[in-house]
Design a protein around this nucleic acid. Sequence first.
DNA 1: ATGATTAGATTTACATTGTGATACTAATGG
DNA 2: CCATTAGTATCACAATGTAAATCTAATCAT
Lengths: 109, 109
Amino acid sequence: MLGEFEYLLITAAAGLADKAYGAAIREEIETTTGRKCSIGALYTTIDRLETKGLLKTWMGDATPQRGGRSKRMVRVTPKGVQAAKAFYDAVIRVSRGASWAANRTGSVS
Amino acid sequence: MLGEFEYLLITAAAGLADKAYGAAIREEIETTTGRKCSIGALYTTIDRLETKGLLKTWMGDATPQRGGRSKRMVRVTPKGVQAAKAFYDAVIRVSRGASWAANRTGSVS
DNA sequence: ATGATTAGATTTACATTGTGATACTAATGG
DNA sequence: CCATTAGTATCACAATGTAAATCTAATCAT
């Protein structure tokens, strides 16, 4: 099963689509969660997810800005999407009936 | 932030209410998730959550059955409920827009 | 009453995941 | 040609997740 931060990372990367690369993903995570995302957390997790085949990464070209360095681009693989879905479904299913979860019927309006 | 298994455990315990004790929680987790819950995972996590103040436990009396041993009863503290809610909300918020998440508006039917 | 059986809890050791701190790399601007 | 800067890489450690084996005491059958 995915860890919680792994899920966050995959979700952020998926949302950024072809604009997904290390620093941008970090930015995204920080804005959507409101909490700090350390550099270490980011790249070690990217590495691990790539090893597991849930992400694919490659070096893109540099930002044409002062200091712009070659970016590590990220793409979520089908297997990654599947794992994310499994995580999400598990949380929803388990939470059914919990007082803190919106009392959903399972059907969507 | 809570880990994923910690969330599972709190949710199961909350659902069982005053019938929540080690073995029952384990049973609950296995049926709602469909995956094995090892003994070690269970009690070490209970210990950790208690240390963090998210659970309170005490020894109850034995089941009046052959081998019935004193049960370790579990109650989720207000702080525990709060942590679970935070975890749940974080997952929902972050997943907004993800292809694998049901496209919910935030309102509930 | 005594040993086998059994529900349940505990412990230990290790694997996986999460995180801060620090260092590296190369392009740009002056 | 060096200071600055966007971005990546690495390291060491903390927190979480898990399997396997063991302990405990109440009941049952004899």
